[in-house]
């Protein structure tokens, strides 16, 4: 028995690919759901009535002050005690989406508040309604403003997806550990997994830069 790393890698390709697929699904789902939720969180923080603001502010502060791992564990173990039985994948995605939403909420709030008041006033002065002002004046500026930080958040979600291995979701890290327990090639396979995460996040970052360039306002 003298298999090289490449032989082992070839043998382990199916579970590793499945793990990669699960990792990508977790990340995508939590980013998409978290972003949609986060936009509402941000809007509530800026335009909500006072009681709404307080509640949402409490939500984001609480979530952002909690370690992601704790959110993942709570989502899996605590929710079941109150009768909400989620599988590990669903529970994990829920935890990450909630985490993502609080961060995106803050991004959206910051981006909207960074736009000078004069923009809203100028829009009002030509007779735009609030919805129109938001759609054509504030929204497009806030999107550009929030994009770089949002890309960072997306990359963070990919990294945070590894935490789901703790509750038994067969994502890339857990699959890698299983392969290592069979082959004892810990250094090689951890490096390989690390390389895959790097490729995903580097891709996200390049894509973000590309969109930034495409949407940049000439000056």
């Amino acid at each position: 028995m003298d298999f090289s790393f490449l032989d082992q890698l070839w043998l382990a390709r199916i579970p590793l690919l499945k793990g990669l697929g699960v990792s990508v699904s977790i990340s995508l789902l939590s980013i998409v759901v978290g972003t949609v939720l986060g936009v509402f969180v941000g809007l509530a923080l800026v335009y909500g009535l006072r009681p709404v603001k307080w509640i949402v502010r409490g939500y984001t502060d609480f979530i952002r002050g909690t370690p992601v791992l704790v959110l993942v564990l709570a989502s899996y173990y605590v929710l079941s005690t109150i009768g909400i039985d989620l599988g590990p994948f669903q529970a994990g995605v829920l935890a990450l989406a909630v985490f993502c939403s609080s961060h995106v909420g803050e991004l959206v709030r910051g981006a909207l508040q960074s736009i000078p008041k004069g923009q809203t006033e100028a829009a009002k002065a030509i007779g735009l309604t609030f919805a129109q002002t938001f759609a054509y004046v504030l929204g497009p500026q806030a999107l550009r403003q929030a994009l770089p930080a949002w890309v960072n958040t997306a990359a963070e979600m990919v990294k945070a997806s590894t935490l789901l291995s703790i509750i038994g979701v067969s994502e890339l890290l857990l699959r890698t550990q299983e392969v290592i327990s069979r082959t004892f090639m810990s250094l090689e396979f951890y490096f390989f997994a690390g390389f895959l995460y790097f490729v995903i996040n580097y891709g996200i970052e390049r894509f973000g830069r590309y969109v930034e360039r495409k949407t940049a306002v000439p000056s």
């Binding site: 000078p116 004069g118 006033e121 100028a122 829009a123 002065a125 030509i126 609030f130 497009p140 550009r144």
Partner: peptide
Amino acid sequence: PEREIARQRALTGMAFQQFNLFPH
């Protein structure tokens, strides 16, 4: 109502100290 106020705002035009052009 806001909609009515928006309509009335279009009766006047305003130019501001800080221009307030839409930069995008």
